[in-house]
Amino acid sequence: MSTEILENLKKAVMEYDHEGAATLARKAVEEKVDPLEALNALTVAVRQVGDGFGRGELWLPDLIGAAETMMSVMPILDEEIERKGAKRQSLGTVAIGTVYGDIHTIGKTMVATLLMAEGFTVHDLGINVTAETFVEAVKKYKVDILAMSALMTTTAPEQRKVISALKEKGIRDKVKIMVGGGGITQKFADEIGADGYDPTAPGAAKLARTLVGK
């Protein structure tokens, strides 16, 4: 029974079926399926969609659809994990946002979604985020990775400003910094002393794993 539920959960994610996935997650809880195993099934499904994307067989709406289906049933499983006193394994904590002066949201949201699906705990700070807000978030959430997006070359220098602010507060070394967005290049990322850059959202999710050594 448990195997069947897990297989169906995977299938629901791969069919972007929020409602079906939620029903199955509740069923898993009722039938006392290990919630960590259920969570694992979801992650495997999202990875499979990610692989399909990498092979050019699936497209962004598929990737986002699968990741969001997974996210939508997480609260059900999280509640059960907590009730059982188990601990959900997180690859690490990420704070992500689009820098000040820049209101482009799509790329940032794509990366945030994929990071959550990878198993990171993600705090999405939104768009038009000031250096102070980034610094505050690093302190408040004790983040492992700070991820910044800038689409325009006019706003890219904000990323440098955030790194300087972290240095001033003496917490630059406590966090890995990854940058991306249309206005960013590897050269620029190196210049401002970021720890990583990737031009694509799936690449950014892989990069995050590398940065935390997972």
Binding site: G56, W59, L60, P61, G107, M110, G182
Partner: peptide
């Protein structure tokens, strides 16, 4: 139209 591969 959105480029459904690259996101741009």
């Amino acid at each position: 139209p959105q480029n459904m591969k690259s996101g741009v």
